[in-house]
Design a protein around this nucleic acid. Structure first.
Lengths: 104, 104
DNA sequence: ACGACTCATAAGTCTGTGCTTATGTGTATG
DNA sequence: CATACACATAAGCACAGACTTATGAGTCGT
């Protein structure tokens, strides 16, 4: 997937909320609906969009569909974003310090 | 600015193209229009949106307005995205190696 | 002072998309 | 086998937003 689609997909607040809810745990579509003032088809459509963009993956189990974040799908976003950090030097210094501390 | 607005702003391909064109160099609104099949007001509106989100900054000079990327404006996006990389361990190892080489 | 210019704002149109209700497809259970 | 359940798909509506043309607000050169 290219960053064009990913940005379009992530522009929707409901879809970002879904991802947030899925970060760490695997959930079914119905579980996901809890806390959302949204119809079942709407959720299903959002899930289809997220899946289409490669941001979540599905594990079928009978009539249940379990969804989880697919972190690899965010790679194009990382790539795109890398173009717009000119802090790199100072950031690298911070990282160097951090890793030095971790080594102790 | 929060990531909600930033994602909405970046969902538009024209605005991402503007940022790409501005990465590295400072340009006026008219210079920016070159290569875009877009009216002057449309460009002006896109610029206003990008500026409102803190992704570009303006330097006024007479009747000219010079625009440049404001890399700091992308910070919320970095923060949001950090939540969705579970590669961290291996990445950190790679960085550790890289920085070790840089130190030599 | 006037005309040419750079950019911003106003107002209106049109397409994209997120929502709804209704229905379809497949799976478990009594 | 019939019913309930989990999810997907279809169709239609309504609103957001990106575009246009027209015009306004400042700035420069002659």
């Amino acid at each position: 997937m290219n960053e064009a689609e990913i940005f379009k997909v992530l522009a929707d607040p409901t879809r970002r909320a879904i991802l947030e809810r899925l970060s760490g745990e695997e959930l079914t579509a119905t579980d996901l609906r809890e806390g959302f003032a949204i119809s079942q088809p709407a959720m299903s459509q959002h899930i289809a969009v997220l899946k289409g963009a490669g941001l979540i993956s599905e594990r079928r189990e009978g009539r249940f569909a379990h969804y989880r974040v697919d972190a690899a799908g965010f790679a194009p976003l990382h790539g795109w974003l890398a173009r717009y950090r000119d802090f790199w030097p100072s950031r690298i210094d911070n990282l160097r310090d951090m890793l030095r501390e971790m080594d102790q």
